Simulated assay, not measured.
Amino acid sequence: MSRDGHLIAIEGANEVGKTTLAHCLAESFLERGESCRVFAFPGNDAGTLGSLVKRIHENPPSFDVQDIEPTSLQLLHVAAHIDAIEGRIRPLLKEGTNIILDRFWWSTLVYGRVSGIDKGVLEEMIDLEQKYWDGIFPEKVFLIDREVPLNSDADRDSWDQIRNEYLNFAESDEHSYPVEIISNDASVEEVVERLRSSVDSVLGRARST
């Protein structure tokens, strides 16, 4: 009987290098002959609700929408997350496929707080999403951090606020799974090696030479 796949989540503010690192980490599974998929939240795969929500988020006017109220926007993201969990992530894990997540439900919390969503409403959103994660726990969540965003044109005030929210949450005691903060201020090769070593350690497997 095949075992379930492993779930690793990579979180952090925009422009910290999450996507690059997620794909590099996936390569380490593939190099061992293990199946692995990378999923981004809300989503990049064509024909999915996540991809649609991403496009609406990035360019509302192209869908004849001028403005999206923050609570409504975050609910769209939660719907996309649930769709991915039930439609693809849970079945693939059951088949033994390892999954690297480019964002986790943490993004619902952090971006919801920063956008000023009512605390009680935000908690209900997170409770709803976590119901669909029922029985699925990441082996580890990596919070990728940098002193400055990779894109020098990023709004630093907003970026710093999001970064600090992530750091505060990662350092809290609200987690039932291992959490590690990874600085992405070194070379990609160095950071990927640290990620690989940490994953090998948590999965209890020997490093390949």
Score class of each variant (00 low, 15 high):
residue 88 R to W: 11
residue 99 I to F: 10
residue 177 Y to K: 07
residue 121 V to H: 09
residue 46 A to S: 08
residue 186 A to N: 04
residue 66 Q to C: 13
residue 43 G to V: 02
residue 69 E to D: 14
residue 183 S to Q: 06
residue 174 E to F: 02
residue 54 K to P: 00
residue 75 L to D: 06
residue 173 D to K: 13
residue 136 I to A: 12
residue 120 G to M: 12
residue 72 S to A: 15
residue 47 G to L: 04
residue 1 M to V: 07
residue 68 I to V: 15
residue 186 A to H: 04
residue 196 R to D: 14
residue 32 R to P: 01
residue 104 F to S: 10
residue 66 Q to N: 15
residue 193 E to N: 09
residue 193 E to P: 03
residue 24 C to H: 10
residue 187 S to I: 01
residue 121 V to L: 14
residue 160 D to Q: 13
residue 94 K to H: 15
residue 139 E to L: 14
residue 5 G to W: 13
residue 209 T to W: 09
residue 47 G to I: 08
residue 162 I to M: 01
residue 35 S to A: 11
residue 169 F to D: 00
residue 94 K to Y: 13
residue 81 H to Y: 13
residue 41 F to T: 12
residue 178 P to T: 12
residue 177 Y to S: 06
residue 56 I to K: 07
residue 9 A to S: 08
residue 165 E to S: 00
residue 163 R to H: 08
residue 27 E to K: 15
residue 155 D to S: 11
residue 188 V to Q: 08
residue 177 Y to T: 04
residue 75 L to T: 12
residue 57 H to F: 07
residue 198 S to H: 02
residue 21 L to Q: 10
residue 141 V to I: 11
residue 203 L to A: 12
residue 68 I to Q: 07
residue 26 A to Q: 09
residue 151 N to E: 14
residue 51 S to H: 08
residue 85 I to C: 04
residue 150 L to I: 10
residue 59 N to A: 14
residue 121 V to E: 14
residue 153 D to H: 12
residue 170 A to P: 03
residue 132 Y to Q: 05
residue 3 R to L: 15
residue 190 E to Y: 04
residue 137 F to I: 12
residue 145 D to V: 14
residue 192 V to S: 10
residue 70 P to K: 04
residue 11 E to N: 00
residue 108 T to S: 07
residue 139 E to G: 13
residue 199 V to F: 06
residue 3 R to V: 06
residue 48 T to M: 03
residue 188 V to Y: 02
residue 132 Y to A: 06
residue 56 I to H: 06
residue 106 W to N: 01
residue 154 A to V: 10
residue 59 N to G: 11
residue 108 T to D: 05
residue 52 L to F: 11
residue 6 H to T: 13
residue 3 R to S: 12
residue 157 D to L: 08
residue 65 V to C: 12
residue 174 E to K: 11
residue 116 G to D: 06
residue 91 P to H: 12
residue 92 L to W: 15
residue 197 S to P: 04
residue 128 L to C: 02
residue 173 D to R: 11
residue 175 H to Y: 06
residue 206 A to I: 08
residue 154 A to W: 04
residue 78 V to K: 05
residue 19 T to C: 00
residue 146 R to S: 07
residue 28 S to Q: 14
residue 203 L to Q: 13
residue 131 K to M: 11
residue 126 I to R: 02
residue 170 A to C: 01
residue 110 V to E: 00
residue 43 G to Q: 06
residue 48 T to P: 10
residue 48 T to L: 03
residue 80 A to E: 04
residue 85 I to F: 14
residue 132 Y to N: 02
residue 191 V to F: 05
residue 76 L to Q: 01
residue 116 G to W: 02
residue 86 E to F: 04
residue 154 A to M: 10
